[in-house]
Design a protein around this nucleic acid. Structure first.
Lengths: 97, 97
DNA sequence: CTTTCTCATAGCATCAACGCTATGAGCTGG
DNA sequence: CCAGCTCATAGCGTTGATGCTATGAGAAAG
């Protein structure tokens, strides 16, 4: 499972310019997971969150599944609904193994 | 100058659901400023950065000016070009001011 | 088996970001 | 005055995210 992730990563990294695309997809996936976790933490259904974030249940499902690359305004609305703050910025490259 | 920003903010905040839109616009503006700072720090022209990030000079200018809401993949490419890491996530709401 | 709730997915329309080309403004140095 | 460089901006076509509606799968309860 973790092994296949590494392989996928290496394969994609071989293609030029695919590193960012992969990173972006990874980000979408992780953001979806994070929102789902926070939503369930609050005992909300997708419809609940959707209403609070001025969107539809289908949009929430799509986002949580990482099906699309979320836009900043969407993330902002979700953050607001969840009582969180959206953080977007650049960090110095950490040399992690 | 700073006064007009406040007025704009207050006016927009009055409309429902505009808080996130404002925050998003603010984010776009700040990201543009940050990238410009990092670019100049490295002594690069917009064309230099554009080449490294696989985009055109006009796209860099548009982004730095905060003219559009940047997408995650774009930010990822810029981060890569600048040797930085893009960070996107949610933070607990801090009660500032 | 039927109802209900939750989530996933599809199809479609709209809208905005992005790539691209071209051009103009501002500055500097010849 | 005339390049040359840097940045800003406009127009246009393409692409993809989002909003919306509708429907299906799966589980739980009756």
């Amino acid at each position: 499972m973790s092994e296949s992730w590494q392989e996928l990563r290496d394969r994609r990294m071989a293609e030029p310019g695919a590193a960012e695309a992969y990173e972006a997809a990874r980000l979408a996936y992780e953001l979806g997971k994070a929102v789902r976790a926070m939503r369930e933490e609050r005992g909300w259904t997708q419809s609940d969150l959707a209403r609070r974030a001025s969107m539809t249940q289908s949009a929430v499902a799509r986002f949580e599944a990482g099906g699309t690359m979320p836009t900043i305004p969407l993330l902002e609305r979700l953050a607001e609904a969840l009582g969180m703050r959206l953080n977007v910025g650049f960090q110095p490259l950490r040399e992690a193994s």
